[in-house]
Amino acid sequence: MAYLLAGISAGGQYALIAIGYTMVYGILRLINFAHADVFMVAGLLMVYLTTSVPYYIAIPLVILITVLVAFTIEKCAYSPLREAPRMSVMISAIGVSYLLQNVALYVTGGQPQVYPQMEFFSRTVTIFGATTKMVTVITPLLVAVLVVALVFLINKTKIGMAMRASSVDFNTARLMGIRINSVISFTFIIGAVLAAIGSMLYFNNYPSVIPTSGSMPGLKAFVSAVVGGIGSIPGAVVGAFIIGICENLLKMLGLTPFSDAFTFALLIVILCVKPSGIFGEKKIDKV
């Protein structure tokens, strides 16, 4: 039971990162390699901010600054390449990823930064006879609320409609009066908010943040997005829960060393059997 709970919780954290990958892919057909590092930056921000301000200020501030970082990355590194071949944007994303890691290395001086443990999150609770941390219980609930809010935003609001339209056809969306650049910025902002929230949940289970801390969860979230069908939000969420739960069940079976390998094996299987993922779009590529 404890493992299942841990799996659901890990899945929820992957889901929050995976949504950022999948939404950006949905609109730009870009795999935003820097996303995992934005997640790491959110972690570091929390470390530094909590040394000077209380949690109730630090939390919104982390979200805000993470959004600014993601917004700036899009404006400086992706937006100027809008008409360039997709490969160029992808390379730019890899560059940004290393840039963020190296800035983090410089700022932290290579020392692991101890992540602040929020007392409320770390509190132990007993649920269904299993003893676990509060964060494990809160994560799936929070993820559910956020995903419902997001689905509402995309399906029921004007900006959501603009996002759906832009994801299939930039030029025709422009003809409706939609400002594509605003829609893209907005997509990055949502991804950053979710990644920042995800980082607060994720790092609570880990003692410290280092410049490459984003890599593993980022990679798993990316695999989740691919398994679920990249471009699809429900796909990313389902993929993330599958991976989170399977990993933890393998740990329960004493196969901890294989849990990461499993994730990537699953990726390969999915790519061979159903490349478009569980909820993937049938269409091969954007025209």
């Binding site: 004007k158 409609m161 603009a162 759906r164 339209a165 994801s167 299939v168 056809d169 030029n171 025709t172 969306a173 003809l175 409706m176 009066g177 939609i178």
Partner: peptide
């Protein structure tokens, strides 16, 4: 000024009503 583009280019993933609504985006 609005343009009905060559090849119709309706948004296939939006409903008929949403396609009309998005025409009035501004």
């Amino acid at each position: 000024i609005s343009l009905v583009p060559e090849g119709r280019r309706v948004f296939p993933n939006l409903t008929v009503k949403e396609n009309l609504k998005i025409g009035a985006y501004l």
